[in-house]
């Protein structure tokens, strides 16, 4: 229930994104990650469960939290160490794409 609530919150905030991602809204867990997010999977795993010991599990994480984290990487508010890797990964993502990815990972169980 909690997860659904959070998802609907994110959905409400992101109507514009979801118009172009109708399939994600219909059944996000069984929908492939948007093409612009394919690079995420090499470290975070096909379902958000990584094979690398020092990479966080983001499957099922709160989408708002994930979106804010990605924004903070992009703005440079999260820095140093492995944050530098994430800065590289998100530098070319739009805010709409960030939110779509946050929603996709949040929907993985």
């Amino acid at each position: 229930m909690m997860k659904q609530f959070n998802l609907s919150l994110a959905t409400g905030m992101l109507a514009a994104v979801l118009v172009s991602s109708a399939a994600v809204a219909d059944d996000p867990q069984n929908t492939p990650i948007p093409a612009f997010g394919s690079q995420c999977l090499s470290c975070h795993g096909e379902d958000g469960r990584p094979e690398l010991a020092d990479v966080p599990i983001i499957a099922g994480q709160q989408p708002i939290y994930l979106a804010n984290a990605l924004r903070h990487y992009k703005s440079g508010e999260r820095t140093n160490g492995q944050a530098l890797v994430m800065q590289e990964m998100v530098k070319n993502l739009s805010d709409e794409q960030i939110v779509a990815l946050a929603q996709w990972f949040g929907a993985q169980q």
């Binding site: 690398l52 020092d54 990479v55 944050a83 530098l84 890797v85």
Partner: peptide, 22 residues
């Protein structure tokens, strides 16, 4: 390495950059 300072600051010519690391 990965943002953690190496107190030895060793001189090297080959260093492993960790997977998804710095």
């Amino acid at each position: 390495v990965n943002g953690v300072a190496d107190p030895d600051k060793p001189w090297m010519d080959t260093i492993a950059v960790p997977a998804a690391g710095t």
